[in-house]
């Protein structure tokens, strides 16, 4: 990979100052960024490590909201997010144990891989993404494959998850990469059910609103019987066709409802 300047500031303010340079990029756990730099798909002139900023780490729950710092690793969320078991389970099944000790919540969200697990949890929870400058609702954060509402030089600092009454995440793993071929996060709140799907759409993570309406009326897998997700806009690759993915989304949604109920 091409060389770069490495800096590791101790505060968000210092990080933002360092990121104001042209071609500077933030570095969190690096589990996607480092492989992409090895392939020279990405060649920043400066990397600003966020891992020295103590304020960006940790899980705290107050009332019905769990707030997780952006640089909290998947392993830490798996161990500490006990008040939101479906989220802890999702974090504990990303990648493998070594990846979970480096990869972070904020890094996953800022990258917005169309097959990442965390975006489904954030969108299904109606979470709020807190950045260095503002708060962004999950519905406004994800903006298509590998694209988010983040501006240049803006970093995710935390995510606030409203804790649901019931929730589950079910993914169908692509056996070589262990990324979800499809993954569905279902979360039931007092004011309705939210269903978010990852790994399926060409536009990245999305809400399946027809399923949300049906499940809000009747929170059972049977409520999905008459629904079908159109294959238009679903991804086709060597692992599965658009039709296969659309079918899989319905199957996994039913399984997630059964697991949550």
């Amino acid at each position: 990979m091409y060389n770069f300047d490495f800096v590791k500031p101790a505060t968000v303010e210092e990080a933002l100052a360092a990121l104001s340079d042209e071609d500077a990029q933030p570095l969190s756990g690096g589990q996607t960024l480092i492989p992409s730099m090895k392939q020279r798909l990405n060649a920043p002139s400066k990397l600003v490590s966020l891992l020295g900023i103590a304020a960006l780490k940790g899980v705290k729950t107050s009332g019905d909201v769990m707030e997780i710092g952006a640089t909290t690793t998947h392993a830490e969320v798996a161990a500490q997010a006990t008040a939101y078991p479906a989220l802890a389970a999702l974090a504990g099944a990303i990648g493998d144990p070594a990846v979970r000790n480096r990869g972070t919540l904020g890094g996953s969200l800022a990258n917005n891989d169309p097959a990442a697990c965390y975006p489904a949890a954030v969108l299904a929870s109606g979470a709020t993404v807190v950045t260095s400058g503002r708060e962004i609702a999950a519905d406004d954060f994800f903006d298509g494959m590998f694209t988010t509402a983040l501006d240049d030089g803006e970093i995710v600092t935390a995510v606030k998850f409203p804790i649901p009454q019931a929730a589950a995440y079910v993914k169908f793993e692509q056996p070589a990469s262990r990324f979800p071929l499809c993954g569905v996060f279902v979360a039931k709140y007092a004011d309705g059910v939210r269903v978010a799907v990852t790994g399926a759409s060409e536009e990245g993570v999305f809400r399946w609103t027809e399923a949300e309406a049906a499940l809000s009326a009747d929170f059972s897998a049977g409520a999905l019987t008459d629904l079908s997700l159109p294959a238009d806009g679903m991804m086709t690759d060597l692992h599965g066709s658009a039709e296969y993915r659309a079918h899989l989304v319905k199957v996994l949604t039913g399984r997630a409802v059964s697991a949550a109920a």
């Binding site: 492989p35 090895k38 990397l47 490590s49 493998d96 070594a98 990846v99 000790n101």
Partner: peptide, 29 residues
């Protein structure tokens, strides 16, 4: 593999298992 898939480079950093091919040395300062 040098692509963080095979795990042959696994070491412990501050007691945690990591793939040393997917972490910059500077992060272990």
């Amino acid at each position: 593999c040098d692509t963080s898939q095979c795990g042959a480079c696994t070491v412990h950093v501050d007691g945690r298992q990591v793939k040393s091919c997917t972490m910059f040395a500077a992060e272990a300062e």
